[in-house]
């Protein structure tokens, strides 16, 4: 396990444009795996609930955004910090293999799960091998 797998990465800039919200933005760490009929994306977005997540698909650009709720730690002062708090954003380019109409998103315990079903013609097919006897 290297250090870079734990440290939260802050996004420096967004396409050269400045943001309108005065909050830090982090790049969520993701796992992407492929099964027979779908591509599944898991993104770590601790602090984000189902109301704070936005998934948009424009042309072939998939953007996932997570907004955290304002921290309600009234009466406390921060004494020691290992992670920063802020929103999350990350963009992916999708290929044509994904069936755009059936993308599903769920979030649980701060992990966004995006299921991107493969388009019918892209599904893995098992080829039966006949013996040539």
């Amino acid at each position: 396990m290297t250090e870079s797998t734990i440290v939260k990465q802050e996004e420096q800039e967004y396409g050269g444009a400045e943001r309108t919200r005065a909050r830090r933005v982090y790049i969520p760490r993701v796992d992407i795996y492929e099964t027979g009929d779908a591509v599944v994306l898991l993104a770590d977005m601790p602090g984000v609930d189902e109301n704070g997540v936005d998934v948009t698909l424009e042309r072939n650009i998939l953007t996932i955004t997570g907004y955290i709720q304002d921290d309600e730690r009234a009466g406390y002062g921060l004494a020691y910090r290992e992670y920063g708090e802020g929103d999350y954003e990350r963009t992916f380019a999708l290929s044509d293999e994904v069936d755009r109409n059936r993308i599903e998103a769920t979030i649980r315990d701060g992990v966004l799960v995006l299921t991107l079903p493969k388009a019918e013609e892209m599904k893995t097919r098992k080829i039966a091998v006949r013996s040539a006897a």
Binding site: R29, V30, D31, Y33, E34
Partner: peptide, 9 residues
């Protein structure tokens, strides 16, 4: 499944 990216600890 086949992993394409694996960043989560």
């Amino acid at each position: 499944q086949t992993y394409r990216r694996r960043e989560r600890w």
